[in-house]
Design a protein around this nucleic acid. Sequence first.
DNA 1: AGCGCTTTGTGCACCTGTTCACAAAGTCCT
DNA 2: AGGACTTTGTGAACAGGTGCACAAAGCGCT
Lengths: 240, 240
Amino acid sequence: MSLPQSEGPDSQGPHSPLPRRRTGIPEATVARLPVYLRVLGGLAETGVTTVSSDALAVAAGVGSAKLRKDLSHLGSYGTRGVGYDVEYLVYQISRTLGLTQHYSVVIIGVGNLGHALANYAGFASRGFQIVALIDSDPRRVGEDINGLEVRHLDELETVVKEHEVSIGVIATPAASAQDVCDRLVSAGVTSVLNFAPIVLAVPDTVDVRKVDLSIELQILAFHEQRKSAGPPASLEVGAG
Amino acid sequence: MSLPQSEGPDSQGPHSPLPRRRTGIPEATVARLPVYLRVLGGLAETGVTTVSSDALAVAAGVGSAKLRKDLSHLGSYGTRGVGYDVEYLVYQISRTLGLTQHYSVVIIGVGNLGHALANYAGFASRGFQIVALIDSDPRRVGEDINGLEVRHLDELETVVKEHEVSIGVIATPAASAQDVCDRLVSAGVTSVLNFAPIVLAVPDTVDVRKVDLSIELQILAFHEQRKSAGPPASLEVGAG
DNA sequence: AGCGCTTTGTGCACCTGTTCACAAAGTCCT
DNA sequence: AGGACTTTGTGAACAGGTGCACAAAGCGCT
Ligand SMILES: NC(=O)c1ccc[n+]([C@@H]2O[C@H](COP(=O)([O-])OP(=O)(O)OC[C@H]3O[C@@H](n4cnc5c(N)ncnc54)[C@H](O)[C@@H]3O)[C@@H](O)[C@H]2O)c1
Ligand SMILES: NC(=O)c1ccc[n+]([C@@H]2O[C@H](COP(=O)([O-])OP(=O)(O)OC[C@H]3O[C@@H](n4cnc5c(N)ncnc54)[C@H](O)[C@@H]3O)[C@@H](O)[C@H]2O)c1
């Protein structure tokens, strides 16, 4: 019940090389730092001041060697024979990820998913401030969600510029997603988180990450199929 | 505006090796097959019957060589000089992913996110049937969402066995996620999709994939920081 | 002060995945 | 039928990431 963990193998998205601009930090490491950060936060709350790579690795579900190598990319912040100072490490990881600054986020599409996102407390907790909710449906415009008024799509450019939005979250139907994305990019947004099931085309100065539920399920299905096909070793499902 | 795309570099989750049991299909390929499938579905709808690796690759946001190598893992289903038959390829990918069977899904935690998921049409479209919604809050039990009645947590085991549920979706607060997961696993669920921001411990017979919004944003923040730090090439932010 | 214990940081070998580039295979036109 | 053209499938080089295993570094006890 506490095995090395078999988390989602990876996935997220097919993507271009990303030649690692000037950073020495590998993408794979960047993707894990937020996990370490979250675990460290939990430790700090329970009063722990120091943690070993082994303990942290177990809590984060990775191997300890990998964890140490990851941390070594930010510098030498551990003490041999002791471990890492929790508070200091939190600071260093935050700094590395750029979380010492704050980011303005706009959510486009306030339907089922957009509503959930707008009510989600996990945004603000790391310095991501939702500054606007936008929808194209006039019936939704004006609605108050979690203290923010829904604004019309026409105001997208105004809002982006006014609040210096750097991150756009797309939660519209797939059919509108590319249009919305283009407008975000034109308005100056350089990072997009996309929930619509479509591959967005963007200039390569813009980062896109996607969250696709359906893909996750299909990956699970693949492994599920394998499990049921393998072990029994006889007794087929018949219906070929 | 239609560049090679820089989708989310990868990420999803730190995870153990996954020694590739008996399948010849690489994990990275499995993660992309659903994207191809979606694109092919779109093409089929517009009447296209044949597609070249180049065209499909562009639409899927990957390189054509990668796409051909991916497809080559399922067999030789293309025709040289012509391309791939759309319908046949859809079938082959579906079969490979295990989508020719159907999967029963249960959602635990019907709050903001759970509601959105329960209303999401994208589930059923690929053979994933939501058979139950479960919550621990008595006030939510009995509520009707999208034709399904919310049932109490106590009934989890019953429901899982009754419907032969193979996939559990966890949308509870982080604090309850491990408990819920343990119960799902005990009841026989072998695949879990986790939305709670916590690393789940499971036996390695169980697959876990996680979707973590906050991590996605932090990865974007990292690259965002890099962008604003780089170009100017002087003029530091001062406050060290 | 010295010694043994703990734990970090990393060189190295391995492995997975990506990209290039081209021969093999098929189509279509003459 | 033959030849030019298109596109697949893949061998081979490369790149990125993982895990092992251990020397170096710091701690605390005697
Ligand atoms: N609901 C889920 O759980 C879920 C899960 C995964 C992915 N998704 C995806 O997320 C997206 C949103 O899903 P949803 O369930 O919230 O859909 P929804 O239909 O409930 O909401 C979509 C909202 O976007 C608005 N909209 C449409 N076009 C727009 C435009 N051009 N500009 C601004 N707003 C626009 C609509 O008015 C509506 O309010 C879809 O692409 C869906 O595939 C949803
Ligand atoms: N809302 C979002 O957009 C969003 C985004 C990313 C991640 N998440 C994560 O998803 C999870 C759910 O988020 P939410 O916004 O829907 O929260 P929420 O508080 O709105 O809903 C949680 C639901 O889970 C139920 N619940 C609590 N303990 C339970 C248990 N032991 N068994 C069954 N049900 C239980 C609660 O009664 C409630 O209905 C959280 O872990 C959150 O961090 C949410």
